[in-house]
Structures are given as C-alpha cells and as structure tokens.
C-alpha cells in the first residue's frame, strides 16, 4: 500500500499545468481531490511518474452565474457545493447529490472536477451532469473546447479527455424555477458507491410532465443518460402504466457488473426502483 516514486508538481495556472501535462504525456496525471487516484497509486494499479497537483490554481475555484448557465470551477469541493447559496437556490439537486457522496471528511477534499473527469462509473456527479445536460470545459495546448457530459464518457476510466488536457470547469444550464428534482441512491453504507442511483429533473404543467430528464449511476461502465425513459414520461401524467414503461426503458439500457453490491439482475432492478422513487419525489417537489 505504498505508491511508486513520482515527481510532484504544483503549478499556479492552467497554462502551466497544461504545459507540464504536454511535456510528460501519459506519464503525468493531474491530481485534484485524490480520492480515486491516490488509492490506485497505493495499490500500484496507477503509477504516474509526474503528479500535477491542481490545488494551487486559483482560477479553478468558484461557483458563478453566467447568463443561463451556472459555471463551477473544477477544483470546487463537494463541501463548497453543499454550502453554496446560489446552487441551493438554482440547482438544489447538486446539494442533494453531494450530501450522498462519501462522508464529510472526503467532501472537504473531493472536487466536482475530479469526480466527473476520472471516468469512474461509481461516481455520482457524472450521471447528475448528464441529467442536467451540463458540459465540460477542457483546456489543452490548443486552447479550450467544450464537451457535453452526455458525450464525454466512453468506458470505465476512458473519457473524451486527452492526456494533455485539463477539465477546468463545468457549465450547467439553469433549469426553470419550480422544477422538481431528486437523486435516489441505494448504497450499502455511508461512504459506499451506489448499488444503483437515479437522478431526475422534471417540470410539471398542471398534472402532466412538461419536461423530464433522467440519468443513472453505477449500472454500466459509464453513467447513463436515460433518453428513452425521459421521452416516455414527457407529456404523461405520471400514471402507473407510463412509469412502468419508463422504468422498463431505463432498466433496458443498464449493464451492471455483478459485484459485492449484488448480482447484475439486482442492480438493474434497483436502478428501476431508484428511478420510481426519484420520480415520485421529484413530482411532489415540482410547482404545478
């Protein structure tokens, strides 16, 4: 449980960090909260020769509103997400989800950028970002580009992020005021990854659903945006038959691993149950 040797870098700007990544290519890894990378290094499953600590880059911090978007710096910690008045008002599902990540000690250090960039299907934020249709700002040697969260994830730990690129911010379109939301997570204990989890954001017009977006955590090797399920529910009155069809559509796109959290069949079914419960809660919270 001791990592191999590495050189530690602590750049103070994004440009400096990118330059280090460019000069070392595959041998370098950016370090944000470190909760995934450091254990992997201790197990020697990851052995980067250069560790680029992003903690000294002030530009990667902070939460702000910019037009119709909320922009969150990659190094913003989960604890900062929880305590942001702006997020609590405009995007309360981020606070709800953050509170279900690990435990307070980890949330003081763990960051949004690290959580979404690492490509670990167990992380909660990637599915939430897909649900919210967020996009990621990636800075590389040739400048910045944006990639939608729904396009970012390729396989477990494989993403659209190039080795010389840095994820610097997350841009989230603000959902309409009065939207309903819920993140339902089944886990074995505090600190565990989800057995299955579902994120739901919806708006109601009277008794029918105006808009609905659903994504699932840890039931495939990537987070899953459940587009079909979302479409089935849009325009419905959330009657039990429609919910049943939507749940079936969501379950159909899952492909979980069998592990100590349970066999694949269980985890698929739990994704369905979490979705049902998230829908119920989201609908209760939505203005009509």
């Amino acid at each position: 449980m001791i990592p191999g040797e590495f050189t530690y870098h602590r750049p103070s700007s994004v440009a400096e960090a990118v330059a280090i990544l460019v000069s070392h290519g595959d041998e370098a890894r950016p370090l944000s909260g470190g909760h995934s990378l450091i254990p992997m290094m201790k197990l020697r499953m990851a052995a980067p020769e250069h560790l680029v600590d992003l903690a000294g880059i002030a530009d990667l911090k902070g939460i702000s509103e910019s037009g119709d978007n909320i922009v969150i710096g990659a190094m913003t910690t989960q604890n900062e997400l929880i305590n942001s008045a702006l997020l609590t008002e405009k995007l309360p599902i981020i606070r709800e989800t953050s509170l279900l990540i690990a435990d307070p000690q980890i949330r003081y250090v763990g960051t949004l950028g690290g959580n979404v960039a690492n490509g670990d299907p167990g992380n909660d934020m990637p599915a939430l970002m897909q649900c919210l249709n967020a996009s990621y700002v990636l800075a590389g040697p040739d400048g910045e580009r944006e990639v939608a969260a729904r396009e970012f994830y390729e396989a477990a730990y494989f993403t659209a992020l190039a080795p010389e690129e840095l994820l610097t911010a997350v841009k989230i379109p603000v959902p309409p005021a009065g939207h309903g939301f819920a993140y339902e997570k089944l886990k074995r204990k505090v600190g565990d990854y989800a057995t299955a989890a579902a994120a739901v954001v919806l708006t109601m017009n009277g008794s029918s659903v105006d808009f609905c977006s659903i994504a699932l955590t840890n039931v495939s090797d990537t987070p899953l945006y459940a587009g079909d399920a979302s479409a089935i529910l849009t325009g419905s009155t959330l009657d039990s038959d429609t919910i049943k069809r939507a749940v079936a559509a969501a379950e159909a796109i899952t492909d979980p691993a069998s592990d100590a959290r349970g066999p694949a069949e269980y985890r698929t079914k739990m994704a369905g149950i979490m979705l049902q419960r998230a829908l119920t809660r989201a609908a209760e919270r939505a203005n009509r």
Partner: peptide
C-alpha cells in the same frame, strides 16, 4: 443478510 441477498 445484506440487501441483495434479502431481495433475492
């Protein structure tokens, strides 16, 4: 008796 075995 973890959750999945009870479910099973």
């Amino acid at each position: 008796h973890d959750a999945w075995r009870i479910w099973q």
